[in-house]
Design a protein around this nucleic acid. Structure first.
Lengths: 138, 138
DNA sequence: GTAACTGCAAAATATTTGCATCCTT
DNA sequence: AAGGATGCAAATATTTTGCAGTTAC
C-alpha cells in the first residue's frame, strides 16, 4: 500500500498539503471522483483553483486518469499501474451505477479489441458500462 | 432521406425554425457536435438558451444521443434507428480522431459484450476509441 | 384560441488566470 | 536561496431559469 507522499515522490512532485489531502481521498475512496465530490469530501479549506490545478498535475503525471461522462462532469480515478500523460493504462472497463450514481474501475476487465475500418488507427479505448451495481441490485 | 421537418413530426414535436435549423446541421454534418460547434455553425441568431433546450428536447425524443467525453464538452450525434429516452440504440463505437478532433459514429461496429462480476447488471454501454481517422492517417 | 416555444435578461455554476505570498527542496 | 505551489480575487465561460411575447397547430 503506497502512501500519498510516496506516490508523489515517485512522480517527482513536491509533497504539499493539498496534494496529499486530495491524493488520500482517491486512495481511500475506491471509486471515480469529480472535482465537486472532492471539494465536498474536504473538510479543510483547499482553494478551488488549487484543486483544479492539482487534478491537472495528477493527470499529467499519470497518477489519475479521466473517465468520459455525458453530463459535463469529468471523473477522475487512480491509475493502478504506471501511467504517463501520453500512455495511460486505463483501458479497463468503467462501470457507472445509475442507482447510486457511483463510477468504479473494473481493473480486471479489459476492453475487448474491435476491428476498425481501413485507415483508422486506434490509440486507446474507453468502455463505459451503465447499469446497476452489486450493492444496488434489486 | 428524411427531412428535418419529417423527423420532428415523427416525434410529435412542433416544427419550429430553430429546431429545423439545428436538426439540419446534424443531418448535414455526419459527425458528433457540441453545443459550441452548433452555435458556431449557425449563421442565423438562435438564442443560446434555445439551443440548450432544443438539444435536450432532441435527446428526450431520441433524435440525438450523447457521446461521453473527458473534456467537459458533451457531444451529440444523430440516432440512426429509433431511440427513446430510456432505450437508446447507441451501442455502436464512437471514434475520436485526436488529429482533427472529430468524433464520428461507427454504426456498423457494435460494442462487444463483456462479462461483468456477479451482481452487476448492464443497461447500456459506450465504447469510445481514440486515434487517427482515415483522413488524418500518416 | 391555446399550449408550447422562443428570446431576452439575469442568475447560478463552473473554470481559468494573474499575482503576491508561502512552502518545499 | 530559488523555484514551484498555494490562496485570493477577478475575469471568463458555461448552463439554467423566469417571464413576456410569439408561433405552431
Amino acid at each position: 500500500m503506497m502512501t500519498a507522499a510516496v506516490i508523489l515522490k515517485n512522480k517527482s512532485l513536491s509533497v504539499t498539503i493539498p496534494r496529499k489531502i486530495i491524493l488520500e481521498i482517491f486512495i481511500k475512496e475506491s471509486r471515480a471522483l469529480s472535482h465537486a465530490s472532492i471539494e465536498n469530501s474536504i473538510s479543510t479549506i483547499i482553494d478551488r483553483a488549487t484543486i483544479y490545478r492539482t487534478l491537472q498535475t495528477f493527470l499529467e503525471s499519470g497518477i489519475i486518469h479521466q473517465i468520459p461522462t455525458t453530463n459535463n462532469v469529468v471523473l477522475y480515478a487512480l491509475c493502478q499501474e504506471e501511467c504517463s500523460i501520453d500512455h495511460h493504462h486505463d483501458e479497463h472497463v468503467h462501470f457507472v451505477c445509475t442507482a447510486c450514481d457511483t463510477t468504479i474501475c473494473m481493473e480486471k476487465i479489459i476492453v475487448p479489441k474491435v476491428k476498425l475500418p481501413r485507415g483508422f488507427k486506434m490509440k486507446n479505448a474507453a468502455l463505459i458500462i451503465k447499469g446497476t451495481c452489486d450493492i444496488c441490485k434489486n
